[in-house]
């Protein structure tokens, strides 16, 4: 494992008018690490990862991705977004394009790939997650789980170094959660750097290297899953875990 961080936050603060969303976040993420971010709703989890690819801007501090500062004024966002893929809670597939076109539109336009090459790459990724037979369908014809898998394939087609997952399973029906989690586990095992906002504690226990508990825009605990699920956890964190697990069962 490399010790040079690929993502680093230094004293990051973000405000929405007088609402202090992120408070003094300092964080290093190394290459190949799987990070799970969790916490109560409104704690700033999504905002935190959306800052990494510049979908949200920050007011104080500094975020670096592969030694490039994430800052709109510097014009670095296009370079950042080529390195960082993102998967959204509501999939955000493009409804007017087929699955295949969803996967090839950006490689063709931003990486200047030839059509045939982009389609070959897309089909490779689609067959890796066993949905290549849906390539000619439109997103509205797919189930939620299939949509989210297409979204993952679409992000992979840009050959990113880092993947951000913003609650990838919370909009899914329960029986579809696993098909998406299995793809994520496979990705994790392939050495991709992943930052996941999720409440899937079994997934976290299985693959995460670190878990970060966020509350009120502040990092409360940043530790290994073993520590988080043991009595080393801060009482607030173990209470939160208890509350979501009792809800699940």
């Amino acid at each position: 494992m490399h010790y040079e961080p690929v993502i680093s936050f230094r004293s990051v603060n973000k405000y929405w008018s007088d609402n202090h969303v992120l408070r003094d976040i300092t964080l290093d993420i190394r290459k190949g690490e799987i990070i799970v971010i969790f916490g109560p709703s409104g704690s700033g989890k999504s905002t935190l990862i959306r800052c990494i690819n510049g979908l949200e801007n920050i007011q104080e501090g500094r975020i670096m991705v592969e030694n490039i500062p994430v800052q709109e004024e510097l014009g670095t966002l296009p370079q950042i977004r080529l390195r960082v893929g993102m998967i959204f809670q509501h999939f955000n597939l493009f409804p007017h394009l087929t699955v295949l076109e969803n996967c090839t539109v950006s490689p063709r336009l931003t990486l200047r790939m030839k059509r045939a090459q982009a389609e070959k790459l897309a089909l490779e990724h689609l067959s890796r997650i066993q949905i290549n037979h849906l390539a000619e369908r439109y997103p509205d014809e797919l189930s939620g789980g299939q949509k989210q898998r297409v979204a993952i394939a679409r992000a992979l087609c840009m050959q990113p170094h880092i993947l951000l997952f913003d609650e990838p399973t919370s909009a899914l029906d329960p029986e579809m959660v696993n098909e998406v989690l299995n793809v994520m586990i496979e990705l994790a095992n392939s050495g991709m750097t992943m930052i996941c906002v999720t409440h899937e504690m079994n997934f976290a226990r299985k693959v995460a290297h670190r878990m970060i508990f966020l509350d009120g825009g502040r990092i409360i605990q940043d530790d290994t899953p073993d520590a988080i699920f043991s009595d080393q956890a801060v009482s607030q964190v173990s209470q939160f875990i208890k509350s979501i697990q009792s809800h699940r069962s």
């Binding site: 690819n53 979908l55 966002l77 296009p78 977004r81 080529l82 960082v84 893929g85 993102m86 959204f88 509501h90 955000n92 597939l93 493009f94 539109v105 950006s106 336009l109 931003t110 979204a151 679409r154 992000a155 840009m158």
Partner: peptide, 14 residues
């Protein structure tokens, strides 16, 4: 939906 714009930007499209 705003997500269409965000997804496209996140894919690196200008």
């Amino acid at each position: 939906p705003r997500g269409q714009f965000e997804a496209s930007l996140a894919l690196g499209m200008g």
